[in-house]
Nucleic acid binder design. Structure first.
Length: 200
DNA sequence: CGAACGATTAGCT
DNA sequence: GCTAATCGTTCGA
C-alpha cells in the first residue's frame, strides 16, 4: 500500500468509516506531527455530537464541506482538531485524539513544555497544543498548507470501544485505536470483560 | 441575562 | 482514582 495525500473525496464516507481508515494515516501541520493512532467519530444523528442540535456558531465548520478542519475549544482550555466528513451540511466529523510523534519532535516538546514522548500528543488537547492548532485552522482545507494528511501505508489492527468523556450514547463504539500503540490517550476496555451481547 | 456544563488535562493521593 | 482549573457556548427564564 502506497502513501498518498488525502483529498476532500477521501472524506465522503460515514464518520465511523473515515475514523477507522485514518488509523495509521500521517498528519502534519507545518511539517510537524506524526501517525494518527486514535480517533473518534461523531455524526449529526448522534446525541453525543456537538452537531446533534443543528448548526450553531461554534460547530458551523462541521456543517461545511468535507475534507476540512473543524476546531473547537474544549473545557475553555484546549483546542481540539476534527476532520469534517460525509457531505456538506451533514454535520459529521472525526476527532483526532492521539498521534505518534514522528516529525518536528523538538518543536512539539517546546510547545508542550514537556519531554516525555509518550505524553506529547496522547489526547485531543495535547494534539492541539503540540501542533499549535487554534480557531484559525477551523474551516481550512486539509489538502492545503499548513495541513498534510497522508493515507496509511498498510493495514493496522484496529481496536474499538466507547468514546471518551461523553455522557450520551455510551453504547455507540465509535472510538478507534491502533492496536499495540503506546501513544493511545487511554487503554481500550478489554472486550472480554465487558457485558456480553455487544456488537461493534 | 445568568447558570450550567463540557468530545480535557495535570497534579496529587 | 479524584479534582481543580478555566471559559466559551448553549439554554432556560
Amino acid at each position: 500500500m502506497k502513501c498518498r495525500l488525502l483529498r476532500p473525496d477521501d472524506f465522503l464516507g460515514n464518520s465511523e468509516e473515515v475514523a477507522r481508515d485514518l488509523i495509521g494515516a500521517v498528519l502534519l501541520v507545518d511539517g510537524v506531527g506524526g501517525r494518527i493512532v486514535e480517533t473518534e467519530a461523531y455524526d449529526r444523528a448522534d446525541p453525543a455530537s456537538y452537531s446533534y442540535s443543528g448548526p450553531t456558531p461554534r460547530n458551523l465548520a462541521m456543517f461545511g464541506p468535507p475534507g476540512r478542519a473543524y476546531v473547537y475549544r474544549s473545557y475553555g482550555i484546549h483546542w481540539c482538531l476534527n476532520f469534517v466528513c460525509r457531505e456538506e451540511g451533514h454535520g459529521a466529523g472525526v476527532l483526532i485524539r492521539a498521534i505518534e510523534p514522528l516529525e518536528g519532535i523538538e518543536m512539539m516538546r517546546k510547545r508542550r513544555k514537556l519531554d516525555d514522548l509518550r505524553l506529547l500528543c496522547s489526547g485531543p488537547g495535547r494534539v492541539g497544543e503540540a501542533l499549535a492548532i487554534t480557531r484559525e485552522h477551523s474551516g481550512a482545507r486539509l489538502d492545503r498548507k499548513p495541513f498534510q494528511v497522508f493515507s496509511r501505508d498498510r493495514d493496522y489492527p484496529v481496536l474499538t470501544g466507547p468514546r471518551i468523556g461523553i455522557s450520551k450514547a455510551q453504547e455507540v463504539h465509535w472510538r478507534f485505536g491502533m492496536s499495540g500503540s503506546r501513544f493511545l490517550s487511554r487503554r481500550f476496555p478489554d472486550p472480554f470483560t465487558e457485558a456480553a451481547g455487544r456488537s461493534d
